[in-house]
Design a protein around this nucleic acid. Structure first.
Lengths: 284, 284
DNA sequence: GTCAATATGGAATTTTCATTCTATCTGTTC
DNA sequence: GAACAGATAGAATGAAAATTCCATATTGAC
């Protein structure tokens, strides 16, 4: 039997446990460190899972979980698990509560806090809006066009650029051929010149519209390259060059428009395209 | 053996179960009604307790709990308990309603639509999570550090890159001096070499961590350049180099993590910095 | 009041699960 | 490079928990 650790106290709540784990993580042996990372990253799993299921998920042995718990002074895994369960019982003060607290408080002291909440709220509003403003049929058609394309050209400037840069990253991971247009100045024309009607383009532009993006989309459309676009108005110059286009108005906070809805849209489109491509490859 | 109930469906979420219980409560026999009342009054107990402990607390026999579960189409008590547990995992105000609204709209009818819904839901979940995981005090400190900086260095690779590219765009608009690190290969070292302790850096990196980002953050930290970072785990290599760091776990759909919360965070940070700068300029 | 149908309590059984134990592996010290 | 200490994997164990079963009780119909 190991001596009871009188020097180090057994953490009694989640915060104390988290602190203890963080403090000792560096000295922990490999597998225990693995558990440490897993436990902080997936606290809900620890709360509800069984030793066996957690062990599988964290890629360790159940016995490792027990040893981990004992390292932190608990009798066994079960008693450590209680800490994680208690955490869920005492509901953490949610975002509504905090907002309320903020609005009741002195504004100048928590200025940054209200900015923060403002953007979270704007993002929520954007997302609430998106489902009703995107037509499922159009989405399906867009996926169809882009999934059949050989190379997908991604056109976006300025505020829209983060969206296409995410798509570029994801397409890379998903092994979908793409070309990001508009990174380095000057070579865009040459890149676009390679596009054929077997390719397709996805253009994103919000008001105030980058004239280059519109021009590039028009150029491609004239050369029979199908264009799908995402914009924030039916009057967008992109609309006329596009086979399918989506109108997506982001909510704003203090004049700064959210990108959350566009980002969610872009992710969905990206994954839907990749998924459809796989199906086409298998089926055909 | 009882016939499987083909007419009545087994409730799949807490809301459905609650509705079913309320609907059938009146016709239930005494002990089962007792359990029905208890389960709605003490959902947390059901989630965390064992059949024996709950039975004692509700003043019934364990077998009654099993019968209760079977009455509602579950295989046994354990599967009913899962519903109560799932509810705690996803407990965020207003979230259920939104999801329900989503699954009722046209999108769920088409295949790509479910992908679309999935990403919107993941984005919502991320945003719900963000307010409780970001400490207002830390946010304030981060704003403080970055607002006082001469030039802000933005470090991000791969999946995090869209975030810093948005910040670069916004800083440009807001006339905040910045340097985007990691665009073109090779020159990063030279750019970072110019940073002094009057500057500051904002680094973003999510697991799997780009080793370059961590190395660059460390480099700056060693040269006394204050670093603020955004990451998804307390074990991130960024954490140790940072004066202030934020842990932000994005929800995912089909393994693709949302960026909505990070994006909202980045916007809030950007605007808060700009705002504070203006105040400093006026006041000083 | 009798009978049948349903509900209930509680013990028996089965299943699941955390924990313990031991052989093996890994890394370190001399 | 041998010997040791600590860490780990995986099977064995025993405890705890869920479920089943059956005798008894209750309810309602005739």
């Amino acid at each position: 039997m190991a001596m009871p650790e009188t020097t180090t106290e057994v953490p009694q709540d989640f915060e104390a446990l988290k602190a203890a784990i963080l403090e000792r993580k560096a000295q922990l042996p490999k597998r225990l460190r693995q558990v440490a990372a897993y436990s902080l990253d997936n606290p809900d799993e620890i709360a509800f899972g069984t030793a066996a299921s957690i062990a599988t998920s964290a890629e360790v042995q159940p016995s490792t979980l027990v040893r981990f718990a004992q390292h932190f002074g608990f009798e066994g895994f079960s008693s450590l698990q209680q800490i994680f369960r208690a955490r869920l019982r005492e509901r953490t003060p949610g975002y509504e509560d905090r907002l309320k607290a903020l609005s009741n408080n002195d504004h100048s002291r928590l200025e940054s806090g209200s900015i923060f909440n403002g953007f979270v709220a704007a993002a929520h509003r954007s997302l609430d809006n998106i489902a009703s403003s995107v037509d499922p049929g159009a989405f399906e058609r867009a996926v169809d066009i882009l999934a059949k394309a050989d190379t997908i050209y991604l056109i976006a400037k300025r505020r829209s650029y983060p969206i296409s840069s995410y798509m570029a990253y994801a397409f890379g991971k998903l092994k979908v051929k793409y070309q990001l247009v508009g990174t380095a100045a000057g070579i865009d024309e040459d890149v676009l010149a390679m596009a054929t009607k077997n390719d397709a383009a996805f253009a994103v532009s919000f008001s105030p519209y980058a004239s280059e993006s519109a021009a590039q989309a028009r150029l491609l459309a004239e050369r029979k390259v199908p264009v799908v676009s995402l914009t924030d108005s039916a009057f967008s110059p992109l609309a006329e060059s596009s086979k399918v286009w989506f109108e997506l108005v982001e909510a704003d906070h203090a004049g700064f428009r959210s990108l959350s809805a566009s980002m969610a849209f872009a992710m969905a489109l990206t994954v839907a395209i990749a998924e459809k491509r796989q199906r086409l490859a298998e089926g055909g």
